[in-house]
Amino acid sequence: MAMSEPDIGLALVNIVLLGLLFVVAIAIARLRSLFAIVMLSGIYSLVSAVWYVAVDAVDVGFTEAAVGAGMSTAVLLGAMLLTSRTAKPEKSLRQLGPLLVCIATGIMLIYATVDLPAVGDPNSPANTGVGLTYLRVAWYDTGIENVVTPVLGSYRGFDTLGETTVVFVAGIAVALLLGFGERSLAETIRNEDKNLSKNAPKSDAEDEESDS
């Protein structure tokens, strides 16, 4: 088995994907059009989903694609209905604080990675404790190839059921808050705007972006 060549290729793929993520993140921070930011956050989720699959975290990648690219794009668009289409430009002095917080967090995270075990290290905690037992037993217990799946769905099935319930309830709560359709919050606000603009000379909320 040729170990070195696929490793280099995979490292290149990782570098390209992380570079794309970096470019998207910078663009999200710099752009002012909220619609473009929503679209770019969808792209961010897609790229990170591919990257998760490339580093063998298939389940995380799939969750990222479903929640990040599918669901949260729709929710963010619904939230955009309630606000304006462009963000106000910040004063550059006020951006300094968040920038420092981000840099400090990044330094701490990079410092924390020094303590992480290398990939596939046989002496790492994941490979010495109870995880080894599951790796050995899972195939005979369940007959599923990927070890993550029997752990999630079988060994800790009740836990997964609880998690799924929590996510479902959270989704229902968001749907109730944002609302979809006639009786949604956005629709109510728009109707109020319409009633207000009957008194005002001109309504500009309607065809702002549809023909541009």
Partner: peptide
């Protein structure tokens, strides 16, 4: 499949200004 759903959601949103 997910990609298809997301695109439909975006286009529907901009056609009707609502998801329903």
């Amino acid at each position: 499949l997910i990609n298809f759903v997301a695109t439909i959601a975006i286009l529907k949103f901009f056609r009707y200004r609502s998801f329903q």
